[in-house]
Write a protein that binds this DNA or RNA. Structure first.
Length: 1071
RNA sequence: GCCCGGGUGGCGGAAUGGUAUACGCGACAGACUUAAAAUCUGUUGACCGUAAGGUCUUGUGGGUUCGAGUCCCACCCCGGGCACCA
């Protein structure tokens, strides 16, 4: 065959042929016989108008290679494809052009399908699905109803992220930097009733079960971070009896807000209210409670029993006033004006001002408002309440460091600015009363919306306390580190024989160093106090242990009294700069076992700070780094350590103390960053949410028999200005009868987010035509059930990292829910998840629509070079999981390779390849570990040797089989030309035994090193046994080796059989 | 700031602690050709040297080891994710 390689003709020919023969269809269980099933999945694309992206091709080719190889290995492979076709781009296109989204989708999927087929992917097209197909979204809606019926879908009025441009509510995940992920418009907060899915109910399992799946480690880490599990405790801080915050007169002056130089509690005074006045007020309050006005009583009935989600009290004393209603933990006072009680002499202004000083928000309503429009009143109260949970009489905080409670010197609640509220709470551990602050850094939606401030052990609390002069009390102190112990977990030590110096004094900036000439650089001894010894004894011991000097004489200490610790600790454990210079004299005595040489290499030098900086002998950058740390200003110690100042817990390890302190003062609690999933979209092109609102019966699910709720055709796709979906305008669709009472009712007009259809699509592939169920139990069991050691699920799922925290997490949530309903056979949807790197534009920038020149059109490449070349190129361009830049110039490489493969078929000989078995093994394992670039390199190397040395037909056929998954068309064509009339893709994958013995009798190159540097090589022929003796004798005869061994004593010989021989000569050992 | 990756020729990249720079692109030289393209052959990390040969080299500085791109410590730079998460 002398004709040239014509990719167009070959590729079309085989694509048609394969479609006809259906060789890539997955078999049902009954047909598959003994075969193992292999379900491999790639993310189905959103069929955009731009057509296929080179990034799709990277992912699809990779798993196509895997699928083809597994088929050849005799597995029953399911490799399906479909369309995730709901979504904004199509809708926006419809808005612009007036073209129906369904029609646009149809055109786009046709184009995508054509493109995918042109690339020769071995998808099972008989299982093609489309999320916009009513037969598909019927089940998406059905699944939603399952969530609803099990209480996991609920409607909630909530502040949502609102994109004013797209006019759509966004999930938190769709907001990037406060901007809409799609259009970049600044996101606003807007109140809206939305359907929610309670993914947080599964937060714990979504985190824990990551242990059971084989995901790329970084995917697990990213999901864990997103779920954001943190363990800690909730602790209640009761309000103090309300103190009077205003100075009343001499002798009763109160310092407000708290003052003091952070110098303990002495300057941190407050005074309790005058008990006599308090009692009088209290009597009045009780009387008023028994005798409320009509409006007061009406409002009270609405506020009581946590009806608004927080605890209100009525007729409550605050300072010198009695207020009508107050929510203490939210600092909100509600007053009803009207029938003025006789004691209310003060002006409203004074009251308001007074309460504001205490940090209270005050809202007022008239009697009329309460009596005539209670709904509006409650709405306003609701708006005035900051988000978060109330406790009532206490402020509840969440903390991950409960053991530091003895160091909690203030309490902070969310606020717009930092300010003292005038309120105090009691620290349940110390019994002290500590001020309550509003703080900007506290977020209302984290934990309980309040935190205990522990300045000594949290960086942010530390900064806050310094700024506002709040006391800082240390309750955890770092453990000492001793370099002589074996390194502990998390504690790094510098190499011991480089540690020579000790003790600096930041005040006079002097450093005492012990220098060792052999190692002219120097660093500091780290160490700690052991047992009962004091600092001086500890320092002596350290010096002795490090240097061997046994007679270490203490002279004096510079820098003040010795406190808790003195040596530097490791970077992250370095805490404060309380360092003292201890001056020692070292006397070297005879009894020490130091050699003459060693005696000389120690000397003691004093260096000033400046001298130190100039010292040329000090080369080690660690030196400066250590010094940096010594002089670092004080900061919070946020790590573990030993408890101090903590009553009976002092002396315990902080980890140990944690549990005990929780038991005594709080409740263990785990929180998550993950929030419930906002499931409503006010858009047209999505699955209608199958719910009906009846003013009598509230929300009712659409009966199953009425599914699917078909998305009606509309004329206008533009969302309405009121934020409702365009569906709200289709009155004949919206108005329905209530399924429960048969009365007038309205359909939900919101649609589902486009994450809905993709949350379960892998299930539908198992049984795409099923009209009775979303998929039959039997088929799900076959494709997803547990087998052997596998816990079941899709065997291998590849996709983009960008889907890690959304799609991947959502579908895991749905699957777990379905598992709980016993509708799927196992608890995780995907057993193995890998991820391809991005393809960047030439030059390494991201491909983007706004820069059309950066976008590569795959159709063009296929036309010019062929699908096989494009597939090879995308796999060869770099490591699969890494981002790589496109480089059109380089495509010629894979193309040339295929042309040479083509030509070689005309030049077969009798020559048997030597390294074929090695290559088979390498390529086989490389494919499984997605190392396609090196697999292809292996094929290239094989081809190079074939060209040089000739190749037999048998070996060439093995080669074609190895090539077939990568370049299926050319492999098939050549296979046919060699005289076969069955498909190469149904051949058996080459095994080692078929492709010759693994080369064990090949000649061995042994490198000869002197001191680890290669000086010569010796060659042992195939049969010769490579003993150390033989190798050594041969090596010693080499003049190249002799040259280096001349007049030297060989101290040691290292021999690695068959690989290397190393002569070690003492003098040349690098020091 | 925290958490993940990564840093090797002109470029993409390869390398179970054991010949660094495989494979490919590009470049240079040669063959074929009237010529060019294509193809084929050879060369291609840097420096010194006519050569034999030698020295240096995997972001930087140290360490461990007979031997380090690979392991340990520290730092610098680039990419990605999260971000007052108590």
């Amino acid at each position: 065959m002398a004709e040239a390689y014509d990719h167009n003709q070959i590729e079309q020919k085989w694509q048609t042929e394969w479609e006809k023969s259906g060789i890539y269809s997955a078999q049902e269980k009954s047909e598959a016989g003994e075969k193992n099933k292999f379900y491999c999945l790639v993310e189905f694309p959103f069929p955009s108008g731009d057509g296929l992206h080179v990034g799709h091709i990277r992912s699809y080719t990779a798993l196509d290679i895997l699928a083809r190889k597994r088929r050849m290995m005799g597995q029953n492979v399911l490799y399906p494809m479909g369309w995730d076709a709901f979504g904004l781009p199509t809708e926006n296109y419809a808005i612009k052009t007036g073209k129906a989204p369904a029609l646009v989708t149809q055109e786009n999927t046709d184009n995508f399908r054509k493109q995918l087929k042109a690339l020769g992917f071995s998808f099972d097209w008989s299982r093609e699905i489309n999320t916009t197909d009513p037969e598909y979204y019927k089940w998406t809606q059905w699944l939603f109803l399952q969530f609803y019926q099990h209480g996991l879908a609920y409607k909630k009025k909530t502040l949502i992220n609102w994109c004013p441009k797209d006019k759509i509510g966004l999930a938190n995940e769709e907001v990037v930097d406060g901007k809409c992920e799609r259009c970049g418009t600044e996101v606003e907060q807007r109140e809206k009733e939305q359907w929610m899915l309670a993914i947080t109910k599964y937060a714990d399992r979504l985190d824990k079960d990551l242990d059971t799946v084989d995901y790329l480690e970084k995917i697990k880490i990213q999901q864990r971070n997103w779920i954001g599990r943190s363990e800690g405790a909730e602790i209640e801080f009761p309000f103090s009896p309300t103190p009077d915050p205003l100075p009343k007169g001499e002798g009763e002056e109160r310092k407000n807000p708290p003052l003091g130089g952070g110098n303990g509690w002495g300057e941190f005074g407050y005074q309790t209210a005058d008990p006599v006045a308090y009692r009088a007020l209290q009597e009045k309050a009780v009387g008023m409670r028994q005798n409320p006005t009509e409006a007061e009583e009406k409002l009270w009935q609405e506020l009581r029993d946590n009806k608004l989600g927080c605890h209100f009290r009525r007729q409550h004393i605050i300072g010198k006033f009695i207020v009508d209603f107050v929510c203490l933990e939210k600092m909100l006072v509600v007053e009803v004006d009207g029938d003025v009680h006789d004691y209310q002499k003060e002006s409203d202004e004074e009251r308001t001002k007074y309460l504001a000083q205490l940090g209270y928000k005050l809202i007022r309503f008239s009697n009329e408002e309460v009596l005539n429009n209670i709904k509006k009143v409650l709405e306003q109260i609701n708006l005035a309440l900051p988000l978060g949970e109330g406790a009532g009489g206490v402020i509840k905080v969440f903390t991950t460091r409960p053991e530091t409670i003895f160091g909690a010197t203030y309490l902070a609640i969310a606020g717009k600015t930092d300010k003292f509220t005038g309120q105090y709470v009691t620290n349940p551990a110390t019994g002290e009363e500590i001020p309550v602050w509003e703080a900007e850094y506290v977020m209302s939606d984290v934990g309980t919306g309040a935190l205990m401030g522990v300045p000594a052990h949290d960086e942010r609390d530390f900064a806050f306390a310094q700024k506002h002069n709040l006391p800082i009390r240390e309750v955890v102190t770092p453990k000492m580190i001793d370099t002589h112990d074996p390194p502990r977990e998390g504690v790094k030590t510098v190499a011991r024989n480089a540690i020579q110096a000790i003790i600096i004094n930041p005040k006079n900036q002097k450093v005492l160093c012990l220098k060792w000439k052999k190692f002219p650089w120097t660093t500091f001894i780290t160490g700690g106090i052991e047992g009962d010894e004091d600092m001086v004894e500890a320092a002596k011991r350290e010096i002795t242990e490090e240097t061997g000097y046994k007679n270490v004489k203490y002279v004096k200490t510079l820098g003040g009294p010795v406190e808790s610790h003195f040596f530097a600790n490791h970077k992250n454990e370095n805490r404060k700069a309380v360092f003292h210079a201890l001056v020692f004299e070292l006397e070297n005595e005879e009894q020490q076992e130091l050699s003459e040489e060693e005696k000389q290499i120690h000397e003691v030098v004093w260096l000033t700070w400046d001298e130190l900086a100039k010292d040329k002998n000090i080369k080690c950058s660690e030196y400066e780094l250590w010094l940096d740390r010594f002089f670092k200003p004080e900061h919070a110690w946020a790590s573990e350590g030993v408890m101090i100042n903590s009553s009976e817990f002092s002396g315990l390890d902080s980890v140990e103390a944690r549990e005990k302190i929780i038991a005594k003062f709080g409740t263990a609690k785990t929180t998550y960053k993950l929030r419930d999933w906002i499931f409503s979209r006010q858009r047209y092109w999505g699955e209608p949410i199958p719910m009906i609102f009846c003013s009598k019966c509230d929300w009712q699910p659409v009966p199953e028999s009425d599914l699917p709720v078909i998305l009606p055709e509309v004329k206008e796709y533009q969302p309405r200005d009121d934020g409702e979906s365009p569906l709200a305008s289709v009155s004949e669709w919206v108005n329905v009868k209530c399924p429960k009472c048969g009365g007038e009712a309205r359909r939900e007009t919101d649609t589902m987010p486009n994450w809905a259809g993709s949350s379960w699509y892998y299930l539908r592939y198992c049984d795409p035509e099923n009209a009775q169920e979303f998929a039959s139990e039997e088929k799900l069991q076959y494709w997803l059930g547990k087998t052997g050691t596998s816990l079941g699920g899709v065997d291998w799922y590849n996709g983009g990292m960008e889907h890690t925290t959304l799609h991947l997490l959502y579908s895991r949530f749905w699957h777990k829910f379905l598992f709980d309903l016993k509708l799927v056979p196992n608890s995780e949807p995907y057993q193995k998840r890998t991820s391809h790197g991005l393809i960047l534009a030439e030059g390494g920038v991201k491909m983007s629509k706004s820069k059309p020149e950066t976008i590569i059109n795959p159709d063009k490449i296929v036309g010019l070079y062929g699908a096989d070349t494009l597939r090879l190129y995308e796999m060869f361009m770099g490591p699969f999981e890494q981002a790589v830049a496109w480089n059109t110039e380089s495509i010629i490489g894979p193309r040339r390779f295929l042309e040479r493969v083509w030509k070689l078929s005309d030049n077969l000989s009798e020559k048997t390849a030597e390294n074929l078995a090695d290559s088979v093994q390498k390529i086989t394992s490389d494919i499984e570990s997605l190392k396609f670039n090196t697999a292809i390199s292996g094929l290239m190397i094989l081809l190079n040797t074939f060209e040089k040395e000739g190749v037999s037909k048998t070996d060439y056929e093995v080669f074609l089989k190895l090539l077939a998954p990568f370049a299926p068309h050319i492999a098939e064509e050549l296979w046919q030309k060699l005289g076969h009339n069955t498909s190469i893709h149904q051949e058996k994958w080459p095994e080692l035994s078929e492709s010759g013995e693994k080369t064990t009798t090949r000649e061995q190159n042994i490198m000869i090193q002197v001191n680890g540097i290669i000086r010569d090589k010796i060659v042992l022929s195939g049969g010769q046994e490579a003993t150390e003796e033989i190798a050594k004798n041969m090596a010693l005869q080499s003049p190249k080796v002799q040259k280096w061994l001349d007049n030297k004593t060989v101290k040691k010989v290292v021999y690695i059989p068959g690989r290397l021989l190393n002569f070690v000569i003492y003098d040349n050992i690098k020091t």
